[in-house]
């Protein structure tokens, strides 16, 4: 059982290294998601999940990442409830983005729970990450 697992990690790593070799934070997170079951990374799937709306009870019955961040990653967003401005998500216009693993995991946890009503899977996080990074 151990051998196929190792091969799988190597395959994903190869793919990651070819795309994101210049970013150690993202590489390291993607490796950890691979170890938790992410099979491949797909930015288009990340975009689909980002724009998809999820039904919720109570205030804001249709939620999506774009509710606060907008669908344009290079544009600033606004907290849907408090109106507080949110800096753009794209590292190309906001160099602070995706540089701190702890911070990335913190917001995945909070925002997946609010938006989707549950924590994101390792696969979903991997897809979000490459979508945001690209």
């Amino acid at each position: 059982m151990k051998a196929p697992y190792l091969i799988f990690v190597v395959l994903v790593s190869t793919h990651i290294n070819s795309v994101l070799a210049d970013n150690t934070t993202i590489n390291s997170l993607l490796q950890s998601y691979a170890a938790k079951g992410a099979t491949e990374v797909n930015a288009e799937q990340g975009q689909y999940l980002w724009q998809k709306t999820y039904p919720a009870n109570g205030e804001f019955s249709q939620r999506s990442c774009a509710s606060c961040h907008t669908e344009k990653l290079t544009a600033p967003g606004k907290h849907v409830k408090t109106n507080k401005p949110i800096e753009p998500m794209a590292p190309s216009v906001n160099s602070q983005r995706l540089t701190d693993q702890k911070k990335i995991e913190k917001w995945f946890k909070r925002n997946c729970k609010w938006t989707m009503g549950r924590e994101c899977t390792a696969q979903e996080k991997a897809d979000f990450l490459v979508y945001l990074y690209k």
């Binding site: 109570g58 205030e59 804001f60 409830k81 913190k106 946890k109 909070r110 925002n111 729970k113 609010w114």
Partner: peptide, 12 residues
Amino acid sequence: LENHFGDNAELD
């Protein structure tokens, strides 16, 4: 904090 006025604001 897990239900902070309808938002999730959990901290370590």
